[in-house]
Design a protein around this nucleic acid. Structure first.
Length: 318
DNA sequence: CACGTCCG
DNA sequence: AGCATGAA
DNA sequence: TTCATGCTATCGGACGTG
């Protein structure tokens, strides 16, 4: 449990307090405590141990107790109480840009909006403008921002998914039977957002590898080409398993995009088994196409004409 | 223009 | 809720 | 040291509303 994790529980409590119409100054106290903790250099757990938590601005005896509870069980009494007093969907409503605790509370109490769906419906039926202080622009902004939010729900930012996957890889690579493990899929293509992480594992003796991999995943399940589950950080992950002698082909195939793969296959048909991507591209008469370019945007034609753009790399920095 | 609300 | 201050 | 009391609570900019 990182400092930021603890801080977000406190901030959530502040929001819940305002959402339920509680004392706004009490809510601010939780906000301030959250801010102090997220900007703290040392680990909160250490501070708690040393008893120096109360030295921090905005943290007194009561708040320190709450923090201890959070560290121990992920939550604390007040927060649990407030949580059960608020419809679960209301927290989603607050994620809409332009909706804070005040407006969300009014939508809830005056229009019975308790979820994104109900919010959308209210806006479409022009009911939001019936509220004092909510005009046509506000209603339209709500609708726009709600749809914007929908486009990114179940999407992970590249950097977050990448970091989570990397720490999974670090553990997986040393597993018995794992010759090699690599990031693949949209994540390898460095898409700005990804729906899931994908990892390719090469193994020469598949027996038992599935189980060992599964033990590092949350809610693991068997799939056609390997297994699926969630990383500790909550990112959905697809683990593909392949024999080493066709690692290159599997890596290429799982990296995609499907448009890129189709474009390659349109030249020479489906590639055979290759150990490396370099061998695969050589076999189809193309230079190795960097993963970021494999989007089916003409990179195959460009490669065939030896016209691939040269990408910037960290080496280009002074 | 004054006020409330949201955001960072 | 935190914090400062003063009393028990 | 503990307890009781009273005072305080981030802030500036942007935007929409009436």
């Amino acid at each position: 449990m990182s400092n930021d994790d603890i801080a977000s529980v406190l901030q959530e409590t502040a929001d819940l307090l305002e959402l339920t119409g509680g004392n706004e100054y009490r809510a601010r106290a939780f906000s301030r405590a959250a801010r102090s903790l997220s900007g703290l250099d040392d680990a909160v757990a250490d501070r708690l141990e040393a008893g120096t938590l109360v030295d921090i601005n905005g943290i007194g005896d009561a708040m320190a107790d709450h923090v201890a509870d959070i560290l121990h069980g992920g939550s604390f009494e007040l927060r649990d109480e407030l949580h059960s007093a608020v419809p679960p969907g209301l927290m989603d409503v607050m994620q809409v840009q332009g909706l804070g605790t005040k407006r969300t509370r009014r939508l809830w109490t005056e229009l019975d909006v308790t979820s994104l769906d109900e919010l959308e419906q209210a806006a479409e039926e022009d009911r939001i403008t019936t509220l004092d202080g909510f005009g046509p622009k506000t209603q339209q902004n709500i609708l726009d921002n709600l749809r914007q939010l929908r486009r990114y729900e179940s999407k992970w930012r590249l950097a977050d998914a990448w970091a989570a996957t990397q720490s999974f890889l670090d553990r997986v690579q040393s597993l018995e039977g794992v010759d090699r493990a690599a990031i693949t899929g949209a994540l390898r293509r460095q898409r700005a957002t990804v729906e899931q992480a994908e990892v390719l594992v090469a193994t020469s003796k598949p027996e038992g590898v599935h189980d060992r991999l599964a033990s590092h995943l949350d809610d693991p399940s068997q799939t056609d080409a390997g297994l699926a589950g969630h990383l500790a950080e909550g990112v959905p992950v697809q683990v593909h398993v392949a024999a080493p002698n066709r690692f290159g082909t599997a890596w290429w195939r799982t990296t995609g995009s499907s448009e890129h793969c189709t474009a390659v296959e349109d030249r020479e048909g489906a590639p055979g088994d290759h150990k490396t991507e370099a061998a695969l591209y050589r076999a189809v008469g193309l230079p190795v196409v960097p993963p970021v370019l494999r989007e089916g945007q003409g990179e195959v034609e460009a490669g065939a004409a030896d016209q691939l753009p040269s990408l910037l790399s960290t080496d280009d920095l002074d």
